[in-house]
Design a binder for these strands. Structure first.
Lengths: 188, 188
DNA sequence: TCGAAGAGTGAGTGATCAATCAGTCATGGT
DNA sequence: ACCATGACTGATTGATCACTCACTCTTCGA
């Protein structure tokens, strides 16, 4: 008569994957310093204590989450490049940008990106992750699009502007300033 | 024989100004959540307790600091516009960008900007400050330069890229990716 | 069937933080 | 000379946080 709770255990590796995925939502709101490990545990459906069995400390956890985000961005750019209807740099870059816009219509991913950028200033481990993350992204975009330095730079500049626009919610504000910043940015 | 400490009192208004100026350095490192009010007090040369006489709470304090940063950015853009050698949009925008680059060679100001952007996601008060800060900036740049929407947008996109570059220290990294991102950005 | 290895947790611990408060001392007007 | 106002601080508080530990329950190979 007891409420028989099917409690299937996962392997530690599976759990780590779950945490990586769900922690994006947790860190998105308040970033590295503002998010508690209890919130991360809750989001993953495990106890706060077990978070520390899966990751040695909060910093490593956040670093892993950021790395996971970069991997997803990379995948999204690959999808974009694969779906491009021509191999000219302009077309490939546009296709990548479009696919990236689709990815971050999620917003959590984008916010983690912003918080990672902020935390990179003081936390060396995070800075390394973000730095090599962007390094790989830049090289991939250059290689896959065949664009010039200026074109690739412009691609990332528009991405950075997209982050700004989302962070301050400019796309849901009105006034000419908001339209100036958002025109042609973040369609989805 | 006692160590006679020249303790000259300031007015509360003066102290508030000091805190506003010095807190930039404090918040630059770890942002809103990561910086303690004790650090802010220490940077201003006052006790942690007195920080709360000058500002009602940590959020208002940070909001005021961010507002102060926006004011300094605005001034810098005005200096740039005033020093432009022609009134064509391109020249004025370039002069503004140059003066802005000079301003944020300081780095603390730039970091506060990044942290403000991050904190804007969860703290409503901060979001309002950042939003109206950018609103005013965009309108000013448009008015002073007479540039088109696209030109003004590009101006802010390059600014955002500049923030990214500085946050991850790309300008002191090497490798082609770093050069791609930093070329033509942040001269001083 | 048993036992070792691994998944998972409740209950802490010491440290730290924002905010409060009661009080000291300086300053300037009278 | 006095005192009211305002500048400023030390000590404290209750909450919260990262991290630990002792422990239980599952799973699975031999």
């Amino acid at each position: 008569m007891k409420t028989e709770q099917r409690r299937t255990l996962s392997t530690a590796e599976e759990r780590r994957g779950t945490v990586l995925r769900t922690a994006i939502g947790a860190f998105a709101a308040r970033g590295y310093f503002g998010t508690t490990t209890a919130e991360v545990g809750k989001a993953a459906g495990i106890s706060q204590a077990y978070v520390f069995r899966l990751f040695p400390n909060k910093e490593s956890l956040f670093a892993a989450v950021v790395e996971h985000c970069f991997a997803r961005i990379r995948e999204s750019l690959e999808r974009g490049a694969a779906g491009a209807e021509s191999s000219s740099a302009e077309v490939v870059l546009a296709a990548m940008g479009d696919e990236y816009a689709r990815l971050i219509s999620d917003n959590d991913l984008l916010m983690v990106q912003i918080h990672a950028q902020a935390a990179a200033a003081s936390e060396v481990v995070i800075r390394d992750v973000v730095r090599t993350g962007y390094a790989r992204l830049v090289e991939y975009v250059r290689g896959a699009s065949g664009g010039t330095d200026a074109q690739v730079q412009e691609f990332f500049a528009r991405g950075a502007l997209c982050h700004l626009v989302s962070a301050i919610g400019a796309h849901e504000a009105d006034g000419p300033w908001a339209r100036t910043l958002t025109t042609g940015i973040r369609h989805h």
